[in-house]
Design a protein around this nucleic acid. Sequence first.
DNA 1: AGAATAGTGTCTGTCAGACAGTATCGC
DNA 2: GCGATACTGTCTGACAGACACTATTCT
Lengths: 219, 219
Amino acid sequence: MRKLYPTVMVDIAIFRIDEGEGLRILLVKRANAPQKGFWALPGGFLKPLVDANLEAAARRVLRTKVSVDLPHLEEVCTFSGRDRDPRGWSIGVLFYALLPGDQVEAVIKDKVDAVEWSDPAKPGHRMAFDHSMQLGAALNVLRQKVERHALPLHLMPDRFTLTALQRTCEAILGRPLDKAVFRRRLKESLDLIALEEYEGGRQRPAQLYRAAPGFTFMA
Amino acid sequence: MRKLYPTVMVDIAIFRIDEGEGLRILLVKRANAPQKGFWALPGGFLKPLVDANLEAAARRVLRTKVSVDLPHLEEVCTFSGRDRDPRGWSIGVLFYALLPGDQVEAVIKDKVDAVEWSDPAKPGHRMAFDHSMQLGAALNVLRQKVERHALPLHLMPDRFTLTALQRTCEAILGRPLDKAVFRRRLKESLDLIALEEYEGGRQRPAQLYRAAPGFTFMA
DNA sequence: AGAATAGTGTCTGTCAGACAGTATCGC
DNA sequence: GCGATACTGTCTGACAGACACTATTCT
């Protein structure tokens, strides 16, 4: 059966940093057909009567999975065609979002069988539709930006140490970074504000930083 | 009046190099309402019954404006919302294409009042809808890639000199490049094949090159 | 020879990578 | 002092920018 109008949906790759485990992406287990039981990126259908535009649609979908408005939401690309979804010709617009480290508990379940934070490099689940490709595309965009020295501050809590920021970048890139090189670059960055506070530990305390007002992860 | 389904259209920023004039983009003067008489990027509506996916739709639209299949066609981003087109909620998916220097004559007119190759940096025409923003977005993507040392070989004729390639990059970036620096990088590039032919002029002849088989402008 | 364009050699500053070193905390 | 982590100094090699230099053609 052929359709005259394409279905339009938005999917979102929501990234977070899992302490000690690295970069994680939110996957949901589909509770309904088609592809029931397969895992997918959280997503939903565009509602033109409700959504101002596609990004607004993505934010609305986000609010049904996560109870907060995320500071960074950005389009990756589109996926389209007659066969990518068994329900017929469809357009999927992919966004990615960065979930701050201190808001991880805000995730709620909504009409799905299960929720999981997976390693985006090896999800380990059978993915629905073309979501495996979508995941790869989102991860690529994120990595490219960090590779080009954009600071993923939206993944960090309000106040953080430079070491924690380095761990975040390493988790995204999947390789270790040199501490001295990393800090040398940050010295001249206008995106970081050094605080007069220190994080006590069992060792020498580390200075705390926060993102400069108005900071965005945009290119 | 509100619509339940969004209109889906594709628009294409077609770039070429105009000898001596620099980078040019194809604009068409709208022959029909809405915004009749305003200038726009060539585009058209998605036809799910015909198009395999959005890129195929863009290629189909391209074939009605230009009589060839272009080697490089790539998605930029989407524009969407209730107000960007007076006909109601719509999604515009923007692509950009690179037209080889030896196929410029292939452009035909199709249901438009006029066609013009404009300077993308200052189009000089009153643009329809959000096409002014679209043009800016496409130009940005093209510049970013060339800035990151991607070679815009799809804009060149089959065989070309290194100086001609440098002029093309300069036209895209809008600034002069150093000849020695430019050629030093190209020396190690696997994307260029040096030919045993030379282009005679009124001066010392320049060696001709062509793109390596399988070359693409992809990231 | 001179004009014009093709193509190269080389100096310098900047920056990334590597790695060793110093500083400051708890015990 | 010792372990652990924070933070810095410095050497080196790669590379970009700048610019002068050589090479080859035509007139």
